[in-house]
Design a binder for these strands. Structure first.
Lengths: 355, 355
DNA sequence: TTCCTATTCCTAACCGGTTTCTAAATTCGT
DNA sequence: ACGAATTTAGAAACCGGTTAGGAATAGGAA
């Protein structure tokens, strides 16, 4: 019924609706928004015209005229990773439930692109710009991000850092983080308690806050347990299955005394498990493996992966909740969500306890 | 340097830039867009003012004034699933490389919400609206989607159906599909060739094109191999690990003659494998299992999953490529990407071949 | 009946850009 | 040195809405 062949060829404007309903343009606007008294009879005339013409407002015109934008921008490394995907889901779900639309951008791990994208978002006048994932420990980067926080704030928008440390007290950016360092601490303690004394940490990214914090927890646990830590056991590598696989193969030919591997990520752990299986190393009898994230398939790996649970979806949800609840000019919010270890089957005491 | 404390409090407009540079507003616009001759000296004055004021254009104003929107809308069930996540990545990557931004919406599998969201996208004037995933076989649904295709087309936008069948020749919507039916056919043929005669298909969604097509391939293979198909072996269930787990447990107590399970999805297959492991059924010795999608962790399940590879990322990329390359008013594009089976370790001949 | 107060709607101004059209300033040929 | 061609810049109109600020019409009290 609606398609209206005759007056097609162009999307109808509010003017067309006004003409058809026999009222003025502002009346149509008010009837639709409902923030101003309009006689019932008039309103129904307007609504009928809207239906007949199949009219929808022009979001850009509305945004330009001052009504709020109803848009939340969302920047991640790569939607593909389970980590990001679940945060994305949290963000999208919460945003949608508050009647907002999501603008998505990916950076593919390039700090330069991340900055460029945040800049792009300024053009869009999003209510909030949520940057997800680890930050980079680089002065130039930090400085520019701080600058963007101020620029967005000035423009009535707001920056949210999700899953990375704060930029400082005086920067107008909300931070939604999770217990990253203590999650790594707990897992390392778990391994040390089981009797492991030579543990490799696999997947340190240089200057990426995500791994820096985890390594810090790894270190602190060693210190608390009085176990000396060999720094060469903190191996670099990106957060991928391939990296986990490769680094593990190298590790196996290089050192035979390692009894446990703490992977920076469950994905990395999957690669580790694969390399160990190929090499005929039994997990957990000959080698314990731990991950981080608790992705959906962590329990389906063989053996089921012992890992650190991160409330990804809640992180996303909380980010938009905080951003939207904040009064203009109010102090930036802050939240830290908890993590805890999930014990499954990939960790056991080492075959020959060292002490 | 840029923050400019003095004239802050408001985002600068093009008018401010013009005033500061000592030129008219249109001149600033032209200097920035570069589609009109501007004297080098003037241009640099303008650029300097832009830098000093830290000016960025207002995307809404620009969109309203007629310049193209540079936005692509993207509608999926749930970003969390590997299937959608990879398509999303393809879409985002290609969109970004063509200088477009992505608008993301999720429907959580609700056809009503999907329609509502497409409607919402009309307000946004996106260049293209890409709907991802299976369509619903429901007359009301099909009719409204057809109507939206027309409405979007009329408004200068364009609908792309990604991963679902076309709406018909005369509907202005581009279709980017994959060999779904023949992928299922190939996998079923693979199972039949191995000697299986009683195969369960697990994860049929009622009226969802994704599964309908797969079931069709499942049927056709049985017919070609002259193997009678017991319809009660086509089990319903959503695309989740939990569903795979539950249905498999039920199946095991109900029928003992099934020698292979074809899961609608790798995620479902993960649940199937888990249920079988719990029940002490050896895979592939006692039961063969096949999946569909070839998600990243498919090779890391135990045993490594034999599955059908779907080029998710390419689907996403091709969707935006087709949408953007299309001339206004040109006939809607169409593409079908190939699938192929990936043989790993979860399928073997049945213990007691039946014929 | 008259005056006053609510209602309800319309006219006008504005949001921040882009584009067409016109005028001024320059360059050029001769 | 003069008129024509060519750049370059500005004025005005427009994109599609929203939000004050009046004017008209209605209803109620005196």
């Amino acid at each position: 019924m609606p398609p209206k062949q005759s007056d097609s060829e162009k999307r109808p404007t509010i003017r067309d609706v006004a003409a058809r309903a026999g009222v003025s343009v502002p009346t149509v606007s008010r009837a639709l928004i409902g923030n101003y008294p309009v006689a019932p009879a008039t309103r129904s005339k307007v609504l009928r015209a809207v239906r007949e013409l199949d009219y929808v407002v022009n979001a850009h015109a509305r945004a330009l005229a001052g009504a709020t934008t109803k848009t939340i921008a969302f920047i991640v490394d790569d939607v593909t990773g389970p980590f990001y995907a679940h945060i994305a889901r949290g963000v999208e779900t919460e945003a949608a439930s508050q009647g907002r639309l999501c603008l998505l951008c990916t950076t593919h791990g390039d700090p330069e692109r991340e900055l460029a994208v945040v800049e792009l978002m300024r053009e869009q006048h999003a209510e909030a710009v949520i940057v997800v994932g680890g930050g980079y420990d680089d002065e130039h980067y930090t400085e520019r991000m701080t600058y963007f926080a101020r620029a967005l704030d000035r423009a009535g928008s707001h920056l949210v850092l999700c899953g990375r440390p704060s930029l400082g007290e005086d920067v107008p950016a909300t931070t939604v983080h999770y217990e990253n360092e203590s999650g790594a601490y707990a897992m390392t303690a778990h391994l040390l308690s089981a009797g492991h004394r030579t543990i490799a940490y696999l997947g340190r990214g240089p200057g990426l806050s995500t791994t820096d914090e985890r390594v810090a927890g790894f270190r602190r646990a060693h210190a608390d347990y009085g176990v000396p830590l060999d720094d060469t056991l903190i191996l670099p590598g990106e957060f991928s299955k391939a990296a986990g696989y490769d680094r593990t193969q190298e590790l196996l030919e290089w050192r035979s005394d390692v009894t446990a591997i703490f992977a920076a990520t469950d994905m990395v752990a999957a690669g580790v498990l694969r390399a160990l299986r190929k090499a005929g190393v039994q997990v957990p009898q000959d080698m314990s493996v731990a991950g981080f994230d608790d992705i959906p398939l962590a329990a389906d790996l063989t053996p089921a992966l012992t890992t650190v649970r991160v409330p990804h979806e809640d992180l996303g949800r909380e980010s938009v909740r905080l951003a939207l609840s904040r009064e203009q000019g109010a102090p930036a919010g802050r939240a830290v969500l908890g993590t805890h270890i999930v014990v499954r089957e990939s960790v056991a005491p080492p075959r020959q306890p060292r002490d």
